[in-house]
Structures are given as C-alpha cells and as structure tokens.
C-alpha cells in the first residue's frame, strides 16, 4: 500500500535537493524568447573564465519564452536566480507579486539595469511585394501582419507601443484616431504567438503573413541564420528604444554562493567581453568600444521614442492603460477571421 507514496515522496525529495555537485554553483536564468543564441555564447564565455570566491565553478541553465509568460513562471515558483526579460514592467511585477526581488532592483546595476538595448523593425518577404515601408502600411486592408501576443511577450508590447507612438505623432495626440489606427493594424494580425521566436517561425517557416513586427536583433538573426535573401529588413520612420533589463532574484538565491555568482554573472554582461558578445548577437551594446566595428555598423540611427516619453508615461502608466485585463489592447484586439 505504501509503495506509491514512497515513490511520490522520493520524487518530491529529488526536486527539493536538486542534486547539484558541491563544487559547482548552479544558476537558472529565466529569459525572454530571442535571447537563445546570445546567452548560449555568453554563458559559455562566463563559465569558462569565472570561479566563485571560494573556487567553485558555475553552471547556468536557461529557460526561454515570451517575457510576460516567463515572469509568470517566476511568480508561480520556478527556481530562477537570474531574470533577463524584455521590459522593466515584467521584473516589477515579479518584485511586487512574489517579493523575491527588491523594489529598487533597477538601481543595482548601471544604465537602469539594461546592459543592452534594441528597437522594433519590420521583416518583409523578398522584394517587399506589399511595399511596406512604414507603420501606416501595416494598417492598410489586405496586409497580413505577424506580431506576438502582448499578454505573454515583451517584444509584442514594444511593437504595440511603437505603433502607438507613431500614430500619436501622426494624429497630434487625438486618442480616438490613435486607437483606430492601432486597432486597424491589429485587425490585420493573422496570429499572436506567445513569444518573438514563435512569431519568427510562423512568418519564416510556415509562410504566414506579409510583414513581421519584431526586435531588430531578431530580424538580423533571421537574415543571417536562415535562408539567405528570402527576407528583407525595413526600418520604420519612427520606432521605440527597447531596454531589456536584467536582475538577480535574491529570494531564490538560497544556496551557498548563488547570490554572489548571480551578481557577478550579470555584471559580466557590462564587461568588455560581455558587450562584445551582445553586439555580435545584434543587440545594441551600452559601450560599443569593445565590440567588432562591423557589428556596430549594422545598427541604423533612426528616431526612437522612449518609454518615459509623455505619450507613454513610463511602464507604470503604460502597462495598466494598454495591457492589463480590460485595457486598451483588450478593447482593440479582435482576431482576424
């Protein structure tokens, strides 16, 4: 009779102790969707050179997915010591709802804890058959748009806000017109994936949509890694400066050495080698001096709004107004039929 319960107890115990070797500190970095390749290389570089003060090596595990969804798994209890998400609000929510991150986490690292930035661009099919050059082309009837789900993805929220910012300038702050413009873009959306990488796959592999709204880094990744010449990158006239932040989760750094290793890990992102790897994977580094000039030359200087621009009012205003349940996005979005 007891057999099954013993088995269950054993399984629970196994999960509790994790089974890490004692001369190794393990960290889990819960990240957003397009950073897969970045952290693969960055983790290898960090773990190769780093030892904790008492001489232990570090092993880093990754989990990737839409930023909002990942924040939820941290709140739901995933054992992450480090979060590297797509936008500030997702870490704020973890801090607020779980208490595992201090409220002043942004002050712990330079540049508001964002070691790299990016912006939002368009990907179109070879030859740009629908002549998509700017946000207004996305609102045209008959254009099929792919962008992820703002409820689960961080990139998707940057995409939405970039469109909003463009419309705000076009219509001089007339909110009814801005709403209608953004709504007409989302009427054209064929599919909302849960993360940026999923949206890329939908656009590239499954052939859905005329245009993909995505991260600049994800667009360059697609151009270089996938089928050469099948897609083109379009910079809109106005975009948004996306600042993906990073933070240690002290509430989950219970084991010896985890807190120190997690802090050193994130600081390494700001080190010359970290910044070089960041630029290599198409993220805009804070300090371009160590990066390969060829990597830096890619980034086009375009006009970018900031989330702190009055049109958005920072994440504290933008998140509830646009993305929380019953917010503007919920009012606007009706899936295309």
């Amino acid at each position: 009779m007891r057999g099954g319960f013993i088995v269950l107890a054993a399984a629970l115990a196994l999960g509790a102790c994790g089974g890490a070797a004692s001369n190794e500190v393990t960290l889990l970095n819960v990240s957003y969707d397009p950073t897969r390749e970045l952290y693969e290389e960055f983790n290898a570089a960090f773990t190769a050179s780093y030892k904790t003060p008492d001489g232990k090596t570090v092993k880093i595990s990754m989990s990737h997915g839409g930023s909002g969804k990942q924040a939820r798994t941290v709140i739901d209890g995933i054992d992450a010591q480090v979060v590297t998400l797509a936008l500030q609000n997702d870490i704020d929510v973890i801090a607020r709802e779980s208490g595992k991150i201090p409220a002043d986490w942004r002050t712990k690292l330079p540049d508001n804890s964002s070691p790299y930035t990016s912006t939002i661009v368009f990907m179109v099919r070879k030859g740009n058959p629908k002549a998509i050059l700017d946000w207004s082309d996305l609102a045209r009837p008959g254009v099929s748009v792919v962008t992820p789900n703002p409820k689960t993805s961080g990139g998707a929220r940057w995409n939405y806000l970039a469109a909003w910012g463009y419309a705000a300038r076009q219509f001089g702050g007339d909110e009814a017109k801005i709403r209608e413009f953004v709504a007409s873009i989302y009427r054209n959306v064929a599919k909302l994936d849960s993360g940026a990488r999923g949206a890329t796959t939908t656009f590239t592999n499954q052939g859905t949509g005329d245009v993909l709204i995505t991260w600049e880094n994800e667009a360059y990744y697609t151009l270089t890694e996938l089928e050469q010449g099948a897609f083109e990158l379009i910079y809109p006239s106005l975009s948004i400066k996306a600042e993906p932040p990073v933070a240690v989760v002290p509430g989950n750094a219970r084991k010896d050495g985890q807190l120190q290793a997690a802090e050193d890990y994130l600081r390494y992102l700001y080190a010359p080698e970290g910044q070089r790897i960041v630029a290599k994977h198409f993220y805009r580094p804070i300090d371009p001096s160590a990066a390969d000039p060829a990597d830096i030359a890619r980034f086009r200087e375009i006009e970018m709004l900031s989330i702190d621009d009055p049109v958005f009012g920072g994440w504290d205003q933008a998140q509830p107004k646009h993305f929380d349940a019953g917010g503007l996005f919920d009012q606007i979005y009706q899936p295309a039929r």
Partner: peptide, 18 residues
C-alpha cells in the same frame, strides 16, 4: 505551503513525474 517547505513541484522534476 510547498514553497515555505522549500519543495519545488511545478516547473521541476516532481511535477513532471506526477
């Protein structure tokens, strides 16, 4: 309650087993 006990079920091996 499980979190207070330091037991990970969801997003860990025990959850997958169950």
């Amino acid at each position: 309650w499980l979190a207070d006990m330091g037991i990970q079920v969801l997003f860990a091996v025990p959850g997958i087993v169950i």
